[in-house]
Design a protein around this nucleic acid. Structure first.
Length: 575
RNA sequence: GCCCCAGUAGCUCAAGGGACAGAGCAACGGUCUUCUAAACCGUUGGUUGCAGGUUCGAGUCCUGCCUGGGGCGCCA
């Protein structure tokens, strides 16, 4: 990446300046490179001289001048300047920038990819919504975050597996089955109340009717327990089919659907329970089995050391005990989570497990870290991405929502109203840390002005240029990209070559929202170019430039496509 | 009571400790006989919740407070 090349260039210049005695010797701090806000400051800038002032006992500007004097000037460097209060500003050479068009065309859909992962295996587990009801808009945020992150990590050189964890056992599943039983019985004319804390949503009424229509009264004839089991299986199958369809409507496909129940069936849970028990992490109290927090654990001193080494922040210390097995003998979902993390990191051997959770689960992060540690695994191999909840409004009115309250605005409704592309971008634009307030009424109105169309429109315009060029018998064969010297052309290419840095940034910070802002900048650069630079022209004097521009436009199409694809947004040829 | 996240332009949000805090929408003024005006060009708009601190430099880091949201042993 050009960015890394420039950093190394500066590092070499500093060392050389020290060696030649221009600068005193001291440990050189990390050279950071940023994109200046002002165009006049060039393509890259480093503030490193400011942080060296004290070490060198020199004024930042003087340091900068010494470094600049020792800097090599490879062909990609256009200009190097020192600016107050001590920046080194670097501009790429126009010739090198123009040449990048060929490089982009050569790399095609791989352009922008980096190799930070070096083939290591990461699992991204996302959505994993309880299959007790349809996906909500909150699941939508989870879905978009997880899916885009998976795309980004794959582009950053990781081997990625996308997983949906199916909570097909436990308390909520039993309540789901009992609620479905009631609705099914009601569909057949029986009078039966919903169980306490059951699922009141109308979707179960419909499902009860559908099952009654298909199976008749078959389940009413069974023992209640047997009927519950059969209905749970049937309901789960139907619910998962809907979830899969909703995910698909947003372009999301999973590599694997992992059953919670399977962790019990295949013995993982039993083995892990024994291991934790043998290692002294479990205690019996009040009739239940508890996992000891860091304070009580046998290796609590080790936990503290890890914390001091920065491996785990103090906010990740778990100082509470957590129930693994209830006093009635049934395991909690935390029990399966323990088996699951073992399954991920040991049985299946992922180097890294990423969970995407809503902020309402943030209290569970410390105990996941604690239990990973207790299993003898490095807690750093587990990362939980928390996203703040989506508050929903309709016409300014707050909608309290949840599968268990019965009032649900489904992801499907939103996708049907404003489209998958707009939904994805809307949920992706904000950083995961910021709460979203979504007014459905407004979202439908505003979807016409959604930034997604701005970006897609640039893509469609390019497609249109190519249709017209073909009509006019014009081709890019033999185009000479060194002719691309117009400021608008240069600005567009400079934007295009940022993609790899953006992918690296998104992967390192696990914040895919940077992509959306990049996409808009890229589209903006294209639209400006489009206004200023004619591509297809009858003017004979324009032939060579036209060919070069056609190459540029094809490269822009490539970069736009790569960016949109990473975000899971479609690339329309016509709008 | 304790823990987590947020508070930035009228609205929705950006901003790897760096230069004059940026976009979009909204408002206002221009630009289509030539590849898509879902666009472009320009103008207006800010005490970054408040008070301290660290730093050459703070929207960003630290402490306290205010407001909103979420969480705190047998729901998930």
């Amino acid at each position: 990446m050009i960015r890394d090349d420039i950093i190394r260039l500066i590092e070499r210049a500093i060392k050389k300046a020290q060696k030649k005695g221009d600068l005193p010797s001291f440990d050189v701090p990390e050279v950071t490179l940023e994109r200046p806000k002002e165009e006049i400051h060039g393509d890259y800038a480093t503030p490193v001289c400011m942080s060296m002032a004290r070490l060198a006992r020199m004024a930042p500007v003087q340091i900068a001048e010494k470094i600049v004097a020792r800097m090599e000037r490879p062909d990609y460097i256009g200009s190097v300047e020192v600016a107050h209060p001590g920046f080194i500003n670097i501009a790429l050479s126009n010739a090198w920038v123009a040449a990048q068009v060929e490089a982009i065309l050569g790399q095609g859909e791989r352009f922008g990819h980096v190799n930070r992962g070096q083939g290591r295996r990461v699992q991204v587990e996302y959505i994993s919504a309880n299959p007790t009801g349809p996906l909500t808009i909150g699941s939508g945020r989870n879905a978009v975050l997880g899916d885009t992150l998976a795309n980004v990590l794959a582009a950053a050189g990781w081997q990625v597996q996308r997983e949906f964890y199916v909570n097909d056992t436990g308390n909520q599943m039993e309540l789901f089955a009992a609620s479905l039983y009631t609705r099914y019985a009601q569909a057949l004319g029986r009078d039966m109340p919903l169980p306490e804390a059951g699922y009141p949503g109308s979707y179960l009424v419909e499902m009860g009717q559908a099952i009654a229509a298909e199976f008749g009264d078959r389940f009413l004839g069974m023992e209640r327990d047997q009927a519950l089991g059969a209905l749970q299986a049937e309901g789960l199958k139907r619910m998962l089919a809907e979830i899969e369809a909703d995910a698909k409507s947003m372009g999301i496909y999973f590599d694997h659907w992992k059953s919670e129940q399977s962790l019990y069936d295949d013995g993982t849970y039993g083995a892990i329970f024994n291991k934790l028990s043998a290692d002294g992490w479990l205690i019996h109290r009040e009739g239940a089995v508890w996992f000891k927090g860091d304070r009580g654990g046998p290796h609590s001193s080790q936990a503290r050391i890890d914390s001091e080494n920065g491996k785990r922040g103090p906010e990740e210390q778990e100082d509470k005990d957590n129930v693994v097995v209830r006093s009635d003998g049934r395991p909690t979902y935390f029990a399966s989570d323990i088996a699951y993390v073992w399954d991920k990191l040991v049985t299946r051997g992922f180097d890294w497990a990423i969970y995407v959770w809503g902020a309402d689960h943030h209290g569970h992060v410390p105990r996941m870290k604690a239990v990973t540690h207790a299993l003898g695994l490095d807690p750093e191999r587990v990362t939980v991405i928390l996203y703040q909840l989506v508050t929903l409004k309709r016409g300014g009115e707050l909608v309290r929502m949840g599968k268990r309250t019965g009032e649900i605005i489904t992801l499907r409704e939103v996708v049907e109203e404003i489209g998958a592309d707009a939904t994805r971008l809307m949920l992706l634009t904000r950083s995961a840390d910021s709460q979203m307030e979504l007014d459905l009424t407004l979202a439908v109105q505003e979807s016409r002005e959604n930034p997604v169309y701005y970006v897609q429109y640039s893509y469609a315009r390019i497609a249109s240029i190519f249709r017209y060029a073909q009509e006019q018998g014009m081709s890019l064969e033999g185009g000479d990209v060194s002719l691309l010297t117009h400021p608008a052309e240069q600005a567009l290419i400079r934007q295009m070559i940022q993609l790899s840095a953006i992918i690296a940034l998104c992967a390192e910070t696990l914040s895919p929202h940077h992509l959306t802002h990049y996409a808009q900048k890229l589209a903006s650069a294209f639209h400006s170019f489009y206004e200023e630079c004619r591509v297809v022209s009858q003017d004979p004097a324009h032939v060579d430039l036209g060919k070069a521009r056609l190459k540029l436009v094809l490269a822009a199409k490539t970069v736009l496509a790569n960016t949109l694809t990473l975000m899971g947004v479609s690339t329309p040829e016509v709008m």
